[in-house]
Design a protein around this nucleic acid. Structure first.
Lengths: 178, 178
DNA sequence: TATTGTTATACTCTATAACTATA
DNA sequence: TATAGTTATAGAGTATAACAATA
């Protein structure tokens, strides 16, 4: 299911206006949602999903020494990673073995099946990226550079501790009006 | 917390290779994540979040006749929308009144406080979008058009029924190894 | 019978905090 | 004490299915 604000016209407020068709944030969001759903479908065809793909990719790159680093690469907490790894282990795609030199450390390895699954997802990701790249065409460099600038300004805005979400449902029970 | 694959080098498989720095899908995803977090922070400053903002925006545009249409606009199911509306009603931002001409239909209205909250979020969204737009600068048209092409190719790939996610955790419980 | 919306329930993903084992 | 990872628990967001009210 996809949201679609972009054809819903303009709202004005004081001197400001907000037009769906021209709202960059909204368009970026919706485009990424659409692209993401398509990618999730491709991954699903090879029994994957984004979370698994990210973890396997980080594993495949062997760019981590500890699970803590792996979690940071994937962008989740250690506890969340443990859940995913438990699932992957039960599925028979990875093994966890304690490192003999420091038995606190888990050494993560693909099984043969896990390696095959990883390669299927990698192939899917490569195919998908070719599709996207050809869609952008000759504007590719411009597009990458615009994305990079967007990430920069957002990062400037986005540093500091994460504020708690406005938790509607939690404070809902307290002072509910009749 | 943010994932960061883009500086993690290249994986090769057969004749294909996958390079984080050049992976368009990954870059698009990460950029949107960063931008989204920044936007959520801005909304949080005015007691909002993305779900609430989308719902209030659709309400403000009065572009729906039924909750079903509203849910479709926002991109969620009716049941999910009901939960959000219940929360918004408890918070005192919207009212639900049965339509006298068809008592199955709920008429949704902002309260005064809800209108004010909506306007705060709208102002935040407009400010945020100006920030993004100025970051993209003169490449804006090119950028929009690239996004549009990406959405198109993804939509072509993305039609059809949503496949179930590969539910790792569900089939995990069955044959768990000791 | 069809439509509008709600309720009941469950599932995924995620996080925080407390914990175990090891150093 | 400090570190690596796990477990227990919880919560936000979502969905499906069964339901009630109304047409």
């Amino acid at each position: 299911m996809s949201n679609d604000f972009s054809s819903k016209g303009t709202i004005t407020l004081g001197g400001m206006s907000f037009t769906g068709e021209r709202a960059l944030g909204m368009t970026l969001w919706e485009t990424t949602q659409v692209v993401n759903r398509a990618f999730e479908r491709m991954l699903a065809e090879v029994d994957g999903n984004r979370a698994v793909w990210f973890i396997l990719l980080a594993l495949g790159r062997r760019s981590h020494a500890t699970q803590r680093e792996l979690a940071a690469t994937v962008g989740i907490t250690e506890a969340t990673l443990t859940h995913h790894l438990t699932a992957l282990e039960r599925r028979g795609w990875v093994t966890r073995t304690r490192d003999d030199r420091d038995r606190r450390v888990q050494r993560l390895e693909f099984t043969v099946e896990g390696q095959a699954a990883f390669e299927r997802m990698l192939a899917a990701a490569i195919r998908f990226d070719r599709l996207l790249t050809s869609a952008v065409g000759e504007d590719l460099d411009t597009f990458f550079s615009a994305l990079s600038r967007l990430a920069s300004v957002a990062d400037d805005r986005g540093e500091g501790p994460l504020p708690p979400l406005a938790e509607l449902r939690r404070d809902a029970g307290d002072d509910a009006p009749a």
